[in-house]
Design a protein around this nucleic acid. Sequence first.
DNA 1: CTCCGTGCAAATACTTTGCAAAGCG
DNA 2: CGCTTTGCAAAGTATTTGCACGGAG
Lengths: 135, 135
Amino acid sequence: MEQPERKRNYSRKREAILGAVRSTTCHPTAEWVYRTLKPDYPDLSLGTVYRNLTQFKNDGVIASLGTVGGQERYDGNVMPHTHFVCSVCHAVLDVPGDFVSSRQVEETASRMGLRIDSSDVMLRGVCGKCLKKQK
Amino acid sequence: MEQPERKRNYSRKREAILGAVRSTTCHPTAEWVYRTLKPDYPDLSLGTVYRNLTQFKNDGVIASLGTVGGQERYDGNVMPHTHFVCSVCHAVLDVPGDFVSSRQVEETASRMGLRIDSSDVMLRGVCGKCLKKQK
DNA sequence: CTCCGTGCAAATACTTTGCAAAGCG
DNA sequence: CGCTTTGCAAAGTATTTGCACGGAG
């Protein structure tokens, strides 16, 4: 079941990619990371960004929010928390507060005979900025 | 802001597509709908399935759970409810019970100055079937 | 020297779209 | 008939992968 645990060399670009994701709360896409780092790393390639993000995700170093508007969104904050997605501009915002009770989750797991590793709450609607524009 | 409201003709295939999504609790993909109906509608095309599912979704006749394992999953049950996704086989199961309090959602909306239209809870883990296989 | 990491481009996988033909009202 | 729906194939978009080369240990 366990992976053979690959050796991992140091890489300046990998560090930069991780740094970029951690430096923002905008829940970036691979494309965003690429465009952000490109000026400082002119020979960075999009493939490398994808490869590293996937690796970080598998290692649990960053989290994925799933796909929003066709693109996967990442999050440097691994602590589980709630997200709000604007259906107009696809912005993703952090929402403070716990929305699900762990008691209820545990109860569900045992009742249905499955293992629950995480619970994500996704709120959908229109963000303040887009509400203004619409009026 | 409102769409001009298009006229809609009857179509046997469209009805079949809606029926297929409503007939199952497996939260199907476009591909699944296509393969299910193909025997009875030999000249059905995948593009038509996609076009109609998108339309149903926009009309609020069916719901989308977002992308799981690279494919969009639909749900004929429009009533908001909780889902569990198996990270091994990508099965999606319905989970009975309310996980978020509407009071908390409303409070969040007003505090953050945004409009919240829906709240989805997604539980992730391993389903009973896959747990057995793994042991 | 021996693997690991990367650029680049080609390959995938899913979904959308243009267009001409067939269907509903 | 006029407008809608569809099949088909081509185009699009986001992501993954093969390979040869430069880099870390």
